[in-house]
Design a protein around this nucleic acid. Structure first.
Lengths: 111, 111
DNA sequence: TATATGAGGTTACGAAAAGTAACAAGTGTA
DNA sequence: TACACTTGTTACTTTTCGTAACCTCATATA
C-alpha cells in the first residue's frame, strides 16, 4: 500500500467526507443549527457515533458547539463558514443521486 | 438509532460515496480507464480493499470491468455513464478542499 | 520436466472502527 | 428525597480494514 500523491488537499477533504455519517450530518446542519437530540432522532446514527463525529467536525473547523444554559441545558450545533461552503458538494451529490439512484435500489454496499 | 427519512436516494448515494477509498478510486477513473495494478500503485489502498471496492462499484453500475486476453492478462476498469456523472461531485469536493483545507492540515479525523 | 515470472486477485488473521445498550453528570421540579 | 430531561460516556459485541502470504492462469526459461 503506497501513498502516491494525488492532490493532498483533495485527499484530506475526501477523507473527511468519506467518514460514515459525516455527509448526512452536514446535510442536516445546512438546514440550520440543530440540537444533539434533533440530529440523533433525524439520522440513523447512534449517540456514541454522533458525539464522535460532532467532535471531529468541530476539530476540523466545520461546525461549532454552543451551550445555552436553559433548563435543561440546550446545545446547538451550527456550521461555520467552512461548513457552509460544503453546500455545493452536498447539492451535487443530491442531484446525482436523484438522477441515478433508482428509488428501489437495494442498499449499495451490502453483500 | 432511528431511521428517519431524509431523501432515501440521497442517503443511498451518500452511503456509496462515504465508503472509504470509493471517492479516490472514482477520481482516478475519471482520468480514464485504469488497470488494477495502476489503481493499486497510485492510491494508498491495499489489493484486498481495492478488489472489494471495484466489485461494489461494478455492482452499483458505476464502473465496468473488461478483460483483454493479452499475456499476461490485462484488465481495465472504466466508468459507466452513471460513473462519469459523478464528475461534478468530485469537482466540487476538490474546489472546496483547495479553498478550505490548509496544505499542512493534519489528517482530519485521527485523534 | 521443473521452475520462474507477471497480472490479478483471494485467504487468513489481528487491529481498528462501528453498533448497542446501560449508565452518569448537571440542573431543575414534585 | 426522588425524579426527569438533555447530553453525553462506558462497556461490550459485531463488522470492516490493513497486512502479508498464498493461488491461478498463461507464457518463458533452465
Amino acid at each position: 500500500m503506497k501513498s502516491a500523491e494525488l492532490c493532498p488537499r483533495f485527499e484530506s477533504g475526501m477523507e473527511l467526507l468519506s467518514k460514515r455519517w459525516t455527509g448526512l450530518i452536514i446535510f442536516r446542519l445546512l438546514e440550520g443549527s440543530q440540537r444533539f437530540s434533533e440530529l440523533e432522532s433525524s439520522l440513523p446514527i447512534s449517540g456514541r457515533l454522533l458525539s464522535e463525529r460532532l467532535k471531529e467536525l468541530e476539530a476540523a473547523g466545520i461546525a461549532t458547539r454552543t451551550v445555552y444554559p436553559d433548563t435543561p441545558v440546550r446545545i446547538e450545533y451550527e456550521l461555520t463558514e467552512k461548513g457552509h461552503a460544503l453546500r455545493p458538494v452536498i447539492t451535487s451529490i443530491r442531484e446525482w443521486a436523484e438522477k441515478w439512484i433508482t428509488p428501489d435500489e437495494p442498499a449499495p454496499t451490502k453483500q
